[in-house]
Deep mutational scan, measured.
Amino acid sequence: TFELKGKVGKVVKIAEDHYLVEVEGDKWIAYSDEKLSLGDRVMVVDVDGLKLKAKRIP
Results as ranks from 00 to 15, higher is better:
Thr1Ala: 15
Thr1Asp: 15
Thr1Tyr: 15
Thr1Leu: 14
Thr1Ile: 15
Phe2Cys: 15
Phe2Ser: 15
Phe2Gly: 15
Phe2Asn: 15
Glu3Asp: 06
Glu3Ile: 02
Glu3Thr: 01
Glu3Tyr: 04
Glu3Gln: 03
Leu4Thr: 14
Leu4Trp: 03
Lys5Thr: 15
Lys5Gln: 15
Lys5Leu: 15
Gly6Glu: 04
Gly6Met: 01
Lys7Ile: 03
Lys7Trp: 02
Lys7Phe: 02
Lys7Val: 03
Val8His: 10
Val8Ser: 11
Val8Tyr: 07
Gly9Lys: 00
Gly9Leu: 14
Gly9Pro: 00
Lys10Asn: 10
Lys10Asp: 13
Lys10Phe: 09
Lys10Trp: 09
Lys10Leu: 12
Val11Phe: 00
Val11Ala: 03
Val11Arg: 00
Val11Asn: 00
Val12Ser: 05
Val12Cys: 08
Val12Tyr: 07
Val12Leu: 13
Lys13Leu: 10
Lys13Arg: 10
Lys13Tyr: 10
Ile14Glu: 12
Ile14Tyr: 08
Ile14Gly: 04
Ile14Met: 12
Ile14Thr: 10
Ile14His: 07
Ile14Trp: 10
Ile14Gln: 09
Ala15Gln: 12
Ala15Ile: 14
Ala15Arg: 13
Ala15Asn: 12
Ala15Ser: 12
Ala15Pro: 04
Glu16Leu: 11
Glu16Cys: 12
Glu16Asn: 13
Glu16Tyr: 12
Glu16Asp: 12
Glu16His: 11
Glu16Phe: 11
Glu16Trp: 11
Asp17Gly: 11
Asp17Tyr: 10
Asp17Thr: 10
His18Met: 13
His18Val: 10
Tyr19His: 03
Tyr19Ser: 06
Tyr19Gln: 03
Tyr19Leu: 05
Leu20Pro: 00
Leu20Glu: 07
Leu20Ser: 07
Leu20Met: 12
Leu20Asp: 07
Leu20His: 10
Val21Leu: 14
Val21His: 00
Val21Gly: 00
Glu22Pro: 00
Glu22Thr: 10
Val23Trp: 01
Val23Phe: 04
Glu24His: 05
Glu24Ser: 06
Glu24Cys: 15
Glu24Leu: 07
Glu24Phe: 06
Asp26Val: 11
Asp26Tyr: 13
Lys27Thr: 11
Ile29Asn: 11
Ala30Asn: 01
Ala30Leu: 04
Ala30His: 01
Ala30Phe: 02
Ala30Cys: 05
Ala30Gln: 02
Ala30Thr: 09
Tyr31Val: 13
Ser32Ile: 12
Asp33Met: 07
Asp33Ala: 07
Asp33Arg: 05
Asp33His: 06
Glu34Ala: 05
Glu34Tyr: 04
Glu34Asn: 06
Glu34Gly: 08
Glu34Thr: 06
Lys35Trp: 11
Lys35Glu: 12
Lys35Met: 10
Lys35Val: 10
Leu36His: 02
Leu36Gly: 00
Ser37Phe: 13
Ser37Leu: 11
Ser37Tyr: 13
Ser37Arg: 12
Leu38Ile: 08
Leu38Ser: 07
Leu38Arg: 08
Leu38Asn: 07
Gly39Trp: 10
Gly39His: 12
Gly39Phe: 10
Gly39Thr: 07
Gly39Cys: 12
Asp40His: 06
Asp40Tyr: 04
Arg41His: 14
Arg41Asn: 13
Arg41Ile: 11
Arg41Lys: 12
Val42Asn: 00
Val42Leu: 06
Val42Ile: 15
Val42Gln: 00
Met43Arg: 03
Met43Cys: 15
Met43Glu: 15
Met43Val: 14
Met43Gly: 04
Met43His: 03
Val44Leu: 03
Val44Gly: 01
Val44Ser: 01
Val44Arg: 00
Val45Asp: 10
Val45Cys: 09
Asp46Gly: 05
Asp46Ile: 02
Asp46Cys: 03
Asp46Ala: 04
Val47Lys: 05
Val47His: 09
Val47Asp: 04
Val47Ile: 06
Val47Asn: 05
Val47Arg: 04
Val47Gln: 14
Val47Leu: 04
Val47Glu: 04
Asp48Asn: 06
Asp48Thr: 09
Asp48Pro: 01
Asp48Ser: 07
Asp48Gly: 01
Gly49Arg: 05
Gly49Pro: 04
Gly49Tyr: 06
Leu50His: 12
Leu50Arg: 09
Leu50Lys: 08
Lys51Cys: 11
Lys51Gly: 04
Lys51Arg: 11
Lys51Ser: 08
Lys51Asn: 08
Lys51Val: 13
Lys51His: 06
Leu52Arg: 01
Leu52Ser: 01
Leu52Ala: 03
Leu52Asn: 01
Leu52Thr: 02
Leu52His: 01
Leu52Gly: 01
Lys53Ala: 03
Lys53Gly: 03
Lys53Val: 02
Lys53Thr: 05
Ala54Gln: 01
Ala54Cys: 15
Ala54Ile: 15
Ala54Met: 15
Ala54Leu: 15
Lys55Met: 06
Lys55Glu: 14
Lys55Gly: 09
Arg56Gln: 09
Arg56Asn: 05
Arg56His: 08
Ile57Asn: 06
Ile57Leu: 12
Ile57Trp: 08
Pro58Asn: 09
Pro58Val: 08
Pro58Thr: 09
Pro58Leu: 07
